[in-house]
Design a binder for these strands. Structure first.
Lengths: 213, 213
DNA sequence: CCTTTTATTTTCATATATGTAACAATTCCG
DNA sequence: CGGAATTGTTACATATATGAAAATAAAAGG
């Protein structure tokens, strides 16, 4: 999509946070926000905020600040989330089934269009009676077929640690573009399949370190 | 606890990742691991690995590598997770109830000793028939009382965005030490209550940016 | 309608933090 | 005891954050 010079990774990380901030301000009917306001909400330095945006153009109005709606649109465009992304969830345990009905994904154009498990029958009981059936749970053998048929680009995986790499390999084989790994096990990707890990305990570890020191 | 000179934040983040790596290697009965092996698993530079550990002492053996068990113990000690941390979960929706039975917390000495919700009765149906009752679900009005009675130091919050700040304030009022926020809403803490956010969509946003660019 | 003031961005300069590479020092093993 | 392996450490390079000056749009006042 858009081609930007050389954007710090740290800036990209913060953009998500700014976006959440914009959504929040919009819900409060704020029309404009200064870098100082945004910085305060996001717990960063105001100069940082301005510099981050300046990488992508001149979005602000001197003397005024940033237009909330515009900025939100800009950030979405920069991140590439101004369109729908089709996602599969693999591993429908407790965490996986919570993700299937996670409302925030939908709000942001992240659409879960398939779910897979080794024991689909066992899963049915777990989620259907509570939240209806958001998507049909398929056997993992159908992964490749369905990923291709449904144009799925991202796989969110929540398998037991021992299965994590196997599942990742199956996704790679199915020509997935990116994997978001919730399983606390090291996973490796090949080709140019992008990987992000989301470890709950790491967030706690980090918190605890700063509580202890 | 331990007093170290000045450790980069980035190093602290990686320590969690190294720890997972050690757990994995241990489960595979590996006794020692070189910085190169660790680096490979954790997707970082080998020099980085050595430097990270060197901040805290000389844990390795030249010519050999690092003893897996020892290193694991050292990392836990550095992070402060060589003891039990008592945690409360506030907001027992789909995500909250998944967290209540999340096995990885237990493995790492993170113990959820209380759960709170605005509608405890409504929650019972949701989780009890599936996974038993890991902890009793209490009304949020009892937060302060129970946090103090049970020596709870950390609160994990998963409320609807509109309630996030209110819940955080109640925890602060209850003298909590740290908050891990799963709710996609800006939350602020006062005093020296530490806050970490864990946003699912941010992980996806990041992935998508690098898929698009 | 022009001028001044004010708030705030943009841009540039500087400081700090982090990552990488190179190498001497150490240990193991045959 | 010599060679192969791998760490600990220092020096360098890059990335990121912060601060301060210059620019400019809007609002206020005459």
């Amino acid at each position: 999509m858009a081609k930007f010079p050389k954007i710090p990774e740290a800036t990209i990380r913060r953009l998500s946070s700014y976006l959440k901030c914009m959504v929040d301000l919009e819900s409060k009917n704020e029309k404009v926000a200064s870098s100082a306001v945004i910085a305060n909400i996001c717990n960063v330095n105001a100069a940082q905020v301005r510099k981050d945006f300046a990488y992508f153009g001149e979005f602000g109005i001197r003397g005024m600040g940033y237009n909330v709606k515009d900025l939100k649109r800009h950030i979405k465009e920069i991140l590439g989330i101004n369109r729908e992304w089709r996602i599969a969830v693999i591993g429908v345990g407790n965490m996986g089934s919570a993700l299937l009905v996670y409302k925030d994904f939908l709000k942001q154009n992240y659409k879960i269009v398939a779910a897979f498990d080794l024991y689909p029958e066992a899963v049915i009981g777990r989620i259907s009676e509570r939240v209806g059936k958001p998507v049909e749970i398929l056997h993992i053998d159908r992964l490749k077929e369905v990923v291709q048929a449904r144009n799925i680009e991202i796989g969110i995986i929540t398998p037991p640690p021992t299965e994590a790499q196997k599942v990742a390999d199956q996704l790679i084989e199915a020509n997935i573009k990116g994997i978001l790994n919730f399983s606390p096990a090291p996973v490796r990707t090949t080709g140019n399949v992008k990987l992000r890990n989301l470890f709950f305990t790491s967030a706690l570890d980090n918190l605890v370190y700063y509580l202890s020191n």
